[in-house]
Design a binder for these strands. Structure first.
Length: 591
RNA sequence: CGGGGUGUAGCGCAGCUUGGUAGCGCGCCACGUUCGGGACGUGGAGGCCGGGAGUUCAAAUCUCCCCACCCCGACCA
């Protein structure tokens, strides 16, 4: 039994000034956590209780799925991470440090290397596979900007699992097993979630999905359909191509003088205001224009390749989508010097006429999927101050291919059902990933196959942010007045409130009730504080968020004494006869 | 890393423009009253005003430089 008279707890009446999001604000106010470092939190008794409940739930689901728990140090030597290249590749987000002898160490941001080495150490034969291991461990990432309380910290607890299979079919099974156990886990947490594809296009093959808890304060943007259940990461969504248009009878392309129109907006205004350029039936819009821009692709081997991208003028290039498509290359903006090297490119007036491997610049030219044969565009005429109207794809120009780099806008077409998508935000609570053989190969993990020859296992990795899930649950379940935990996560089943005069019958009833409930196996938080007014007790009970509140108050004085039982979430109250209340509460709490 | 904001008692804030012995609310301690929705009275304790340097007879207040935190963006297996 947790007695509030003894509990190391202080609730705050006012919101802490540095907390913006509800989960952060309430967890601090309710005395669950305190900020201790940039991106680091200390846990107070109630918070730690809740944390362990979440952790227990994660562990339980992992064990149920047949995965085995192991544990690694968080403080690791450099060497294995050097072998896989991640000592450097991980970049600024890796906490690096040295021991007294000057040897390099790191605080692990994730443990692929260690799991791989452990399997290498133990498993020797294909008969030892598949292997499914997990750990629950504190992870360290030197985040540029920790934010939103427990949502994004530099030290956090993560459950990470790894699967080792002999072949792709096995990996698929392992992946599916983890996916299924995550669905059970997040359902059990009472957390609404969507699974979005996070497949990175150009890398090919490696399958990846994110579990997102949809909420406005989330930092991951994803796309969801307004009518079907399609959901995808912005990087993974594909743009449906419209039908091609027959070229017969389309108006010819005409070059016009369009002085002083370096931007899409000035261009549209200009052509609409000019009689000779007006659209016969309507105003031109920015969606009628074809915007061409050039970037430099920096390939991992150091080579630089210019790439031209054509997209409808009503949208911008989404750098995240572009990077995902060109990965592992990186995209950088075209500089003034780059333009100087390509005199055929008229900055602000770049058109398909100069682009593509067959034209003046020789620059590879990829266009948005909407730009299909027969679509006509207003676009640059490759000399300063000139644009061309009705330049038609498939007739006047032929791009080298298509590229998914345009930003996704609300109202875009759903690739699954054809209705409209919307843009939503979510918290990434889980991520499952088919790694393949990258780590096994780098660390020389192999087992003897059935045929006696060495075989390299293929791996999957699967993560759940434990501390982040706690915050997500708090965020999803709380209301204006406080936290509101699902029973399994809550620090107690029943919050017993003594609401009468100290030394009166309420005291006696509350003490007895708390003891009886505990004897029946319920977890009890008992507000037995003296010299605390009833108002404070009620407010604190609501703030702390235990799902069921039992008040020994006025009802105790009645001819047939009663206890008020209140459901924290719904706010419903009922008076239950003192004689029946223990049974009643046991059934409520074990339902 | 760019833009914006904030640092004054445990928490939330005022004071700064116009320099002159540091204030309010909550919380805390003592006593009394009260006891079903963050009660009341009386009396207390508690602060190197983020740090450093400067200007001045005098700096929370003016100047310069740091640092920390929050928000937006960039970044983020």
């Amino acid at each position: 039994m947790l007695r509030m008279s003894k509990l190391f707890l202080k609730t705050l009446r006012d919101d802490p000034a540095d907390a913006e999001v509800a989960s952060h604000r309430l967890l601090v106010r309710a005395g669950y956590i305190r900020r201790a470092a940039p991106g680091g939190f200390s846990w107070l008794p109630l918070g730690w209780e809740v944390f362990r409940n979440v952790e227990k739930m994660v562990r339980d689901e992992m064990n149920k799925a047949g995965f085995q728990e192991v544990h690694f140090p968080a403080l690791l030597p450099r060497e294995p991470y050097d072998t896989t290249g991640r000592w450097t590749e991980y970049g600024d987000n890796l906490f690096r440090l040295q021991d007294r002898k000057g040897a390099d160490f790191l605080l692990a941001p994730t443990h692929e290397e260690m799991f791989t080495l452990m399997v290498k150490d133990i498993a020797g034969s294909y008969r030892d596979l598949p292997v499914h291991l997990y750990q629950i461990q504190t992870k360290y990432r030197d985040e540029a900007r920790p934010r939103a309380g427990l949502i994004r910290t530099r030290e956090f607890v993560m459950k990470d699992s790894y699967s080792f299979d002999l072949n792709d079919a096995g990996l698929d099974e392992s992946y599916a097993a983890h996916r299924a156990s995550y669905i059970k886990l997040f359902d059990r947490m009472g957390l609404p979630f969507v699974i979005v594809s996070a497949m990175s296009g150009a890398m090919g093959g490696s399958k990846s999905e994110e579990f997102l808890a949809p909420m406005d304060i989330g930092e991951d943007t994803y796309i969801r359909c307004t009518s079907c259940d399609y959901a995808a990461n912005v990087e993974a969504i594909t743009t449906p191509a419209p039908d091609e248009i027959t070229l017969d009878g389309l108006p010819a392309a005409v070059v016009h003088d369009t002085p002083g129109t370096p931007t899409i907006e000035t261009l549209v205004d200009f052509v609409n205001a000019n009689e000779s350029m007006r659209h016969p039936d309507r105003d031109w819009t920015t969606a009628d224009t074809l915007k061409n821009l050039v970037v430099n692709l920096k390939h991992p081997d150091g080579t630089i390749e210019p790439l031209a991208i054509g997209i409808p003028g009503d949208r911008d290039v989404d750098m995240k989508r572009l990077e995902a498509v060109v990965s592992p290359a990186e995209a950088e903006p075209f500089s003034a010097e780059d333009f100087a090297k390509h005199p055929s490119l008229a900055k602000g007036y770049i058109g398909p006429g100069a682009l593509g491997s067959d034209n003046a610049s020789g620059i590879r030219y990829l266009v948005d999927p909407r730009i299909v044969s027969g679509t006509s565009w207003i676009t640059g005429a490759d000399s300063s101050g000139n644009h061309v109207i009705n330049l038609t794809a498939g007739r006047d120009f032929t791009p080298d291919g298509v590229i998914e780099a345009a930003e996704i806008l609300k109202g875009d077409t759903c690739p699954a059902c054809g209705s409209e998508v919307e843009i939503a935000r979510g918290i990434e609570i889980g991520h499952i990933f088919q790694l393949g053989r990258k780590y096994a190969e780098a660390l020389d993990l192999w087992v003897q196959g059935e045929d006696g020859k060495p075989a390299t296992p293929t791996m999957g990795s699967y993560g759940v942010g434990v501390s982040r899930c706690l915050a997500a649950v708090a965020e999803a379940t709380c209301d204006e007045i406080g936290l509101c935990w699902p029973r399994e996560i809550a620090p107690a089943d029943v919050h017993v409130v003594m609401a009468g005069k100290e030394g009166g019958p309420q005291r006696v009833a509350a003490e007895q009730l708390a003891a009886d409930l505990e004897a029946r196996g319920l977890r009890v938080l008992f507000d037995d504080r003296v010299k605390v007014s009833p108002g404070v007790r009620f407010k604190d009970a609501e703030l702390l968020g235990v799902p069921t509140i039992a008040v020994a108050g006025r009802g105790v004085d009645a001819d047939v004494p009663t206890i008020e039982v209140k459901d924290r979430q719904s706010g419903e109250r009922s008076d239950v006869a003192l004689a029946d209340v223990v049974d009643h509460l046991v059934s409520v709490c074990t339902a």
